[in-house]
Structures are given as structure tokens and as C-alpha cells.
Design a protein around this nucleic acid. Structure first.
Lengths: 335, 335
DNA sequence: GGCTCCTTTGAGAGCGCTCTCTCGTATCGG
DNA sequence: CCGATACGAGAGAGCGCTCTCAAAGGAGCC
């Protein structure tokens, strides 16, 4: 391996006939350097192909110019077919790129992974951390916040951790979905709820419960974990317990997708016998049979906002504690 | 912001009553330190909550303990619904985690993004880079290799760049798929090919062409770009040009999925009138209507192998130039 | 003309760590 | 019992950068 000796500030300074400090000023965009000197320095930089050594820089500035994005890698499923995380990643990446920060991706599934994330973030190897879709009441975001390390959660964290977050309007979206079912005459409306250790799962259930109660109807609930498999199983349980149901709100598109197949296998037609509404609006939703009516959440925007908030915090600015993005009912053929 | 002064090696050394060098030895797992002293140092580390400053370390070691994963963020689609990248990311993440390296994710869609990747990687801010699914003949991997920076491509790169890569057996998988169609009596077999500026697109087409030619049958080709939308459009073109076709091999599951819908809209039944086979085996494939027969590629493993290769290179070991993982035909109802 | 004040540049001190080199002490053979 | 050998621990020199501080030079003012 022929590791070429890379030029340092010193080398550039010698070539340009100025001091290290002046080169540093030019490289970092200080305006207090005379134009001809700036020009000479820039020329030397170009000729030598100088690139600053970030390690040396962060050693003195105490910044790393990188941000951690922490995802819970629950089992295999996070990254299997779900588009939720990819969209968030992309949103975050876009904003960080604009700010010239690096994105350090950390999957924190296992306890070992979680410990690693804790070590890395508390060790201040990043300028801040974005946590996406926390399960349960993870103490890490709060801990980081107390250490003065900028943190933003994508998805409201459970418990009173006092950490700024961005989230979507789950309850509003679900309310609109269930009302849509009511408006089309459905009265025996069930739900396939998500995991109750996540705000997304809890609030989508709340939205269903409130709206159904408001209409004076009984609730019919089965639980899943947002995956297709769990959706199919929950649908079977619902059919057993409430064979007369005429509509289902599923807390994720994947569960809705699998539930529709289960319904078909049970001889029910969608939407004639049973209407189905999902949540997320993944691309697949437009291609299911029948196409799925669902609640769209602006995931890309969610990631972007989270990153923006974090960058603001890292810059020492104040940020709002909560930022809630709107959801939207996308009506297709399934309801 | 109360940025607490974090303990340094010096502080640990004082507390343990030894020199900085000894603490460094213990922290880095040197065996040449007497057991009681090691114990004392570890105690001091724990008491002070010492975490090494990585910037300072990499300044002297010339390593960064981080690896870049570069993805082409073509338009929006990479991360929209496709599970290809998420799986690769996860595979890479798993291996890097095991090696205690950080994953720096870079999306290189725009020219600006590409420049940023070039700057970052050539600036040696990472110990190596993994490129996934290159489009066209990107000169960057070759350039990095020439600079002595470890590079691995996931998916064989176009052109003779002389960079180690891992890929799957596209041709073998497609051959098996087309033979399966032939074996079931299909004779008017078309293909929806992928983009021809990517090896994956090219080889899957090659596999189709060779197998069809071998059987003495004419080829019927329409091109897409792996997305659903392009698959639907290609299917329409095929139906126009060859209304008599009785089977289709689509170079991605997304295209196959959309093509099946297009067929249904055109009044063709799958598989009775037209058989369909896809490529990828994304989770959705098992839930399409009818469930999709497809060629499975081991994406997680692809990512893991790429990372392993890279780590080996970074450690100065020799690696094989090409590593090809097997594909497998998964027979479901669509063919 | 001399003084002050401002602007521009350079000198130099670290940031926290690793690693070589040196020194001190224990071990062993003669 | 002394010198040779080995081995563990410390001293200290940087890694490449930023940033404070001081010096130098020029402009402006009385």
C-alpha cells in the first residue's frame, strides 16, 4: 500500500509564501485576508491538492461535523420491506448534505448495539444524534440531552424525556380514516393496532378508539407489530372474534396488505364486504389488489425537519420542543 | 450549553498513578502491562468515565475507524420502496459493527453529491469505501484504488476499473427462471429489461437472451429502469408489439409487480394466459396477486461480504478480485 | 509631524493521543 | 557476585490543525 504523503497546511503555507495561520484563514473562509493573498493561497491549495485533515481540525475545534442517525434494528424487519426508515434516512441525508455534515448510521437493535451507540454518542464523537422510532422508554436520548449533546427524536419518545421531537399527526390521520369508513356506512369497524410500546402504535389506536367511541360504536381490536405477518395473524383473530365486521383500519400498510389477502382467503371481498384502510402510504399501497386507501405521512419531510432541528441545536439556537407534521387521507379502492 | 470538561488520558494517568503511555497501553489492550496496574487503570477509567477522543487518536494513527457506504441516490427511487439498498445497508452495518467501525452513509445522486463523496473519500476521512450499484462507468472507485484507498464495489462495476467487487450470479438466476418458463411450455417469452448502464441490468438481459436463443426462440425486449412505473410502461409496449406473448421475465420484482397489474388491466390472466417471473425476491413478492415467482438474491449477504472484503483490505490483506454469490429461483404462483 | 487606532499577518501554544526510545529493575548464567 | 539479557514503565516528541496574542504597517486625526 503506497500511502502517499498528503500535503499539510504547512506545505501550502510554504508554497504560497505565507504562514499557516493565513492559509487556515483562507481555507475557513475568513474575510480578513487581502484578496491577492487569498488568491495565492487558493492556487497553492489547488496545485498541491490539499484537503484539510478533519481529525486535526476536530481535535481543536471540538466539533466533528458529523451527526448520528440511530435506528432500532428490531430483528430483521426494519430494513426488510418497510419504506419508513429509508425515507427518513433520505430526508436526514439531504439536510445534512446541505450543511456539509456527515451522516453516521447506527443500528441499535441488540443490547450490544445500544451500548455501542451510547458509548459513541456520549463520547462526543458526533455533534448530535437523531433517534428514529424509539421503542419503549429509552433513557439514552434524555441522558444525552442532559450531557448537553444535541438530540432530536423522530417520532415522539415515550415518557417525559424532555427531548425535542418531530412527529406526524397520527390521531388526526386515523380520525379522518375512520370517519371515512363511517361516512361510507360502515358500522362494524375493527382495527389492527401497532405495537403499544411505540407512540406511533399507541396514537393510531387512540385515534381509532376516540372516533369509534364518538360514533357510539364498540371497538374491536387486535394487535400486530406493523409487519405483514403480524397483520395476517391479527386479521384472522379479528375474523374469528367478529365475523360480522365490515371495515378494518390497520395501523400500517404492510399489515393492511397482508390483512387484505387474509380476507380474500376467507372469502371476503374488499371493499364490498370489508373495507380496508392502512397507514403510511408506502409505494406498494398503490399496487395492492385492490389499491389501498391509506393515511399518508410525510416521511421525507419528517427526516428533513429532524435534521434541521438538530443542526439548529448544534448551532446553539433554540428549537421548538415539538413539531407535528400533517397527515393526509389518500383514498383508493379499498375503502 | 454546559459542555462538561471530559477526562483525558492525562487525568486517568494521574488518578491511577501511572503515565499516559501506560494508560494508553491498557486502553488499547496491550499485554505488556502488569496485571495490578491494568486493574488500577481500568478502575480509574471507570471512575472518571473516560472515553478516548477519536480525533486525537486518528490524528496520530492515521486511521479513522470509519467506512463510507456510497449509494447512488438516483432521483427519489432508491429509497422509496425498493428493499435492495436497505438490505445491503444492513449487511454492511452488521459487519462493520462487529469490527467496531462506523458507517458513514453517503448518497451520491447529484453531481454535487458525487463531488462531495470524492472530496471526502480522497481526503482520507474514512478507512475505505463501499460503492453500491454504480451506474455507468464511474471513475471514482478506480481513482480511490489508485490512491491506495481500500474500495469494494457491491455489484460489478462497468469498465475495467480493477477494483474488487462482490456480486450475485445474475445470468445463472435468469437462466433458471427462463428455463422454468420453457419447461412449463411457454414459447413466446418476453423480458422487461433493466437499465443498460448497470451490470445488473445488462447481465439479466444477457441471461434472458442466451437462454431464449438456446431454445431457438425469438427475443422480445422492452426496457425499464427497475421501478414499478417503468415496468407498467414496458409491459404496455410489449403487449402492443407482441400481443401473443405467453410469459414475461422482468428484471426486478417492482417491474414484475406493476406488469402483472398491467396485464390484468389488459384482460390477461396471470399465470394462465401470461406467466410472470421477477428478480430480487423482495418481501412484497410473496404478497402480490398472484404471488410472484422470482429469482432471489442474497442481498444481506452481499452487503456483509462487501464489508468483510473491505475490512480485509483495510487490514492490508489480499482479497479476491471477484466474489459471486448464488441466486435461487423461488417458485410461487405467477409462473 | 507625532500619536492613536485599526487592519492584516505571523508566531506559537496547545487540542488528546500514540509510539518510539530510554531507563530502571528483575532474572539468569557464569 | 557481577555482567548480560529481558521486560515493564515513563518521558517526550510529534500528528495537523485552530486560535489567541502580538507585532507590523498604514490611515486618520489633532
Amino acid at each position: 500500500m503506497t500511502t502517499v504523503q498528503r500535503p499539510t497546511l504547512e506545505a501550502v503555507a510554504r508554497r504560497a509564501g505565507v504562514s499557516r495561520a493565513t492559509v487556515s484563514r483562507v481555507v475557513n473562509g475568513s474575510t480578513t485576508v487581502a484578496e491577492p493573498i487569498q488568491e495565492a493561497v487558493r492556487l497553492a491549495v489547488a496545485e498541491l491538492g490539499y484537503v484539510p485533515n478533519l481529525a486535526a481540525r476536530s481535535l481543536v475545534t471540538q466539533r466533528t461535523d458529523s451527526v448520528a442517525l440511530v435506528l432500532p434494528e428490531e430483528a430483521t424487519r426494519v430494513f426488510s420491506d418497510d419504506q419508513v426508515f429509508p425515507s427518513i434516512i433520505r430526508g436526514v441525508a439531504q439536510e445534512l448534505e446541505a450543511a456539509d455534515k456527515q451522516l453516521v448510521l447506527m443500528l441499535a437493535g441488540s443490547p450490544a448495539g445500544h451500548a455501542r451507540v451510547e458509548r459513541y454518542t456520549t463520547g462526543r464523537h458526533v455533534d448530535g444524534a437523531i433517534f428514529a422510532s424509539l421503542h419503549g422508554a429509552d433513557p439514552l436520548p434524555g441522558k444525552l440531552a442532559r450531557l448537553g449533546i444535541p438530540v432530536v427524536c423522530s417520532g415522539r419518545p415515550l415518557g417525559d424525556v424532555g427531548v425535542p421531537y418531530v412527529d406526524v399527526d397520527h390521531v388526526g390521520g386515523v380520525t379522518r380514516a375512520v370517519r371515512h369508513l363511517l361516512d361510507s356506512g360502515r358500522r362494524r369497524i375493527a382495527t389492527i393496532a401497532g405495537p403499544q410500546d411505540m407512540i406511533a402504535g399507541m396514537e393510531r389506536l387512540t385515534g381509532y378508539r376516540e372516533t369509534v367511541a364518538e360514533a357510539g360504536l364498540p371497538e374491536r381490536v387486535a394487535f400486530g407489530d406493523f409487519t405483514r405477518e403480524s397483520g395476517a395473524a391479527a386479521m384472522r383473530r379479528l375474523l374469528d372474534a367478529h365475523p360480522d365486521l365490515d371495515a378494518v383500519f390497520a395501523a400500517s400498510d404492510l399489515m393492511a396488505h397482508a390483512a387484505m389477502r387474509t380476507l380474500r382467503e376467507a372469502g371476503r371481498r374488499v371493499p364490498e364486504d370489508v373495507a380496508m384502510i392502512g397507514f403510511d402510504d408506502i409505494e406498494t399501497a398503490a399496487y395492492t389488489e385492490p389499491p389501498l386507501t391509506t393515511v399518508r405521512q410525510p416521511l421525507l419531510e419528517l427526516g428533513r425537519e429532524a435534521a434541521r432541528q438538530l443542526l439548529r441545536m448544534a448551532a446553539g439556537e433554540e428549537v421548538e420542543v415539538a413539531l407535528v407534521l400533517p397527515t393526509e387521507l389518500v383514498v383508493r379502492a379499498s375503502a
